[in-house]
């Protein structure tokens, strides 16, 4: 087994509500459609001037990362030791479609809408707010996207590219899910709105900083004897483990040389560190 990483913080927003290590909040169902009801003041006591103009992907990612509880830094400070990796099946496809429709309507789409027709903009919004000066990566790899983000986060930490990594798994397709689900995921599984964020650190670094290990993630070659789960279930499984508040461990099997899809379809999950 190779070195393992720990998850020391997590944040989420999904159909049940939003929260993180410090607690959970449920949606007020009387507010109507969840995505339209989302306001920054619901999730944070500090101001966020740009939140209202963001596309839904950026909003969800911003909320999930906010739930990590990272202290806000001054404008002169940067977190250079922290990188970001996001996995998303559909990226900003919703914003793309809105922009496309806008071309044929009235005065055309707004400049703001155009800005959000890149999935990496969600990472940019987070980087600006939390002063994250490290590299950022966005993977769109179909049903394997979330797992690929986790895999790459561990690899970056293993390689010493960063001390900490914010791993994000997010998808928001409220109006378009049924239409494009089969194009993204051949199995035709329903896509839901969610964004999950995890702060991963090397085990030694977390110990030195006295950060608790909420879960452990390892790339391993000997994960026999545990239950394998499908790669597309990784985001839900991981956040479920953390929300239950019990330590857990995810073993990612070593990659064969036959391609990323085969690599990432092998994930094993066991409940105890």
């Amino acid at each position: 087994m190779s070195s393992s990483m720990v998850i020391s913080l997590f944040g989420y927003i999904d159909a049940t509500g939003w929260g993180g290590k410090e607690g959970s909040h449920r949606w007020d169902q009387s507010q109507g459609q969840l995505a339209q009801a989302l306001r920054w003041r619901m999730v944070s006591g500090s101001a966020h001037d740009r939140f209202g103009r963001m596309d839904l992907l950026s909003k969800y990612v911003s909320v999930a990362v906010e739930m990590l509880g990272l202290p806000l830094l001054g404008k002169q400070d940067l977190r250079l030791d922290t990188t970001m990796v996001m996995g998303t099946m559909a990226g900003c496809y919703g914003a793309d479609l809105d922009f496309y429709r806008g071309i044929f309507q009235g005065d055309g789409p707004s400049p703001t809408m155009f800005a959000y027709t890149l999935p990496t903009i969600a990472l940019g919004e987070v980087a600006i707010r939390h002063r994250l000066g490290g590299a950022s990566y966005c993977f769109m790899a179909g049903a394997d996207s979330g797992l690929l983000a986790l895999w790459e986060s561990v690899k970056l930490l293993e390689a010493g590219e960063c001390q900490k990594c914010v791993c994000i798994m997010a998808d928001v397709l409220p109006q378009h899910a049924e239409m494009i689900a089969r194009n993204i995921d051949p199995a035709g599984k329903a896509l839901t709105e969610y964004a999950y964020a995890f702060l991963l650190e090397r085990h030694g670094h977390a110990q030195a900083c006295e950060h608790p290990a909420l879960a452990r993630v390892a790339i391993t070659s000997d994960a026999d004897g545990t239950d394998s789960i499908e790669s597309w279930k990784v985001p839900d499984s991981l956040i479920g483990l953390l929300r239950q508040g019990r330590p857990g461990r995810l073993d990612l099997a070593s990659p064969p040389a036959s391609g990323i899809k085969e690599i990432l379809s092998i994930i094993r999950c066991s409940p105890v560190i």
């Binding site: 306001r39 920054w40 707004s110």
Partner: peptide, 8 residues
């Protein structure tokens, strides 16, 4: 306020 979607 309207066009810039300024919350709050």
């Amino acid at each position: 306020v309207d066009i810039l979607n300024l919350e709050d």
